[in-house]
């Protein structure tokens, strides 16, 4: 249906500069190469001219590194010298037998499962509270809570801060000696709950997850809230009149109607959780520790290249990450396939 629009725009391209109608060409007139070139230029000159610079910049800095990365994963390149040779699947073979790699994969999968689930769950919960938690008014069965825009403004704070700043802030917060968390627990008399946090191999990864959830909940509250306010209020009204309670309306009305947005959010959060580079590099001991307890694929790529001089292996880890991403996207796509609802 968009087609008509493009056609008319194209017609304008060809029409105006030459002053001739493109459709008026007679099949009997043979065009010289020069004329053909001129016609092509009239038709495509502008789009090509406008696309050239963006495409070149994009190709050099984004497309070519991605492709090279796959190529280098089959070489023994150190990253330090320019000579390297093809080694076939040796890097991948090394990966499959590397303990740290499998630890990192495990951590990434855990992040991939827990972080999106908790973030989106809290996002939906708070958005629902904002939109239907209000005191009932006359003529409206459901209404938003008072001051919902203030809540949204505050919840969104972490989203505008750099992940680097947030990671530092929480590194200080978790600090066992002068951090806010242990001090707070001590202050309310829960000294027994005080922990070493990031220095405890059992807790470190969970501490990172808290940070990732903390950053992103606000975004989804705002996103889902926008989606929920678009759902007609009479849906809720009708359900409530028929005796459904509000929890039922959430599962029967809100969630199905928001499903598309939830699914998009799930993929966004998944990509974000897979990354985790900044939080690991900034916050953890080692980094990646203690004892590889917070090692993730993203950080391994970085250390293998810039610390160990094993760029070939690093790119192989990168490709493994890509595979995990693709599997994840396919699973979310499959699980989430629902009939699209129009309302």
């Amino acid at each position: 249906m968009q087609h008509g629009k493009h056609q008319s725009a194209t017609a304008v391209v060809a029409k105006v500069p030459g002053g001739k109608h493109p459709g008026a060409k007679s099949p009997r007139v043979k065009l010289s190469t020069r004329q053909k070139f001129e016609r092509a230029y009239r038709q495509y000159g502008f789009p090509v001219g406008f696309l050239a610079l963006p495409v070149v910049v994009y190709a050099i800095f984004v497309v070519s590194p991605f492709i090279q990365s796959i190529y280098y994963s089959f070489t023994d390149w150190t990253g330090l010298s320019s000579d390297f040779k093809m080694v076939g699947f040796k890097n991948y073979d090394w990966l499959l037998h590397d303990d740290v790699f499998w630890k990192a994969v495990g951590h990434n999968v855990l992040l991939l499962l827990v972080v999106p689930l908790v973030t989106l769950g809290l996002g939906l919960f708070f958005a629902f509270m904002l939109n239907v938690g209000g005191r009932s008014k006359k003529n409206a069965a459901v209404s938003g809570v008072r001051g919902s825009s203030i809540y949204k403004v505050v919840y969104f704070f972490p989203q505008v801060l750099s992940i680097a700043i947030v990671a530092l802030l929480f590194q200080f917060t978790y600090n066992p000696r002068n951090g806010a968390l242990n001090a707070f627990l001590g202050g309310i008399g829960l000294d027994s709950l005080q922990q070493e946090w990031l220095a405890d191999p059992k807790l470190a990864l969970w501490c990172l997850m808290v940070v990732m959830v903390w950053c992103n909940v606000g975004f989804y509250v705002v996103l889902f809230s926008a989606g929920m306010s678009a759902i007609p209020k009479d849906f809720y009204e009708a359900a409530l009149l028929d005796g459904a309670n509000r929890i039922t309306t959430f599962f029967k009305i809100t969630l199905p109607l928001l499903w598309d947005t939830v699914q998009t959010g799930w993929i966004y959060m998944g990509i974000l959780a897979l990354d985790a580079f900044a939080v690991v590099q900034i916050m953890t001991v080692g980094p990646g520790g203690p004892a590889d307890a917070t090692q993730v694929l993203g950080y391994m790529v970085y250390t293998k290249t810039f610390r160990d001089g094993q760029a070939g292996r690093a790119t192989a880890i990168g490709v493994a990450m890509l595979i995990v991403t693709l599997i994840f996207a396919v699973i979310v796509g499959r699980l989430g396939r629902r009939e699209r609802l129009e309302y």
Partner: peptide
């Protein structure tokens, strides 16, 4: 707004960049 050969390819080349982890490109970059 324009029709030209390879348009879809260019579009998907750009849009595809959204779903790849940047870390993958980091080393060659």
């Amino acid at each position: 707004r324009f029709e030209f050969p390879g348009k879809r390819f260019v579009y998907f080349l750009f849009v595809g960049g959204m779903s790849f982890p940047v870390i993958l490109a980091l080393v060659p970059l």
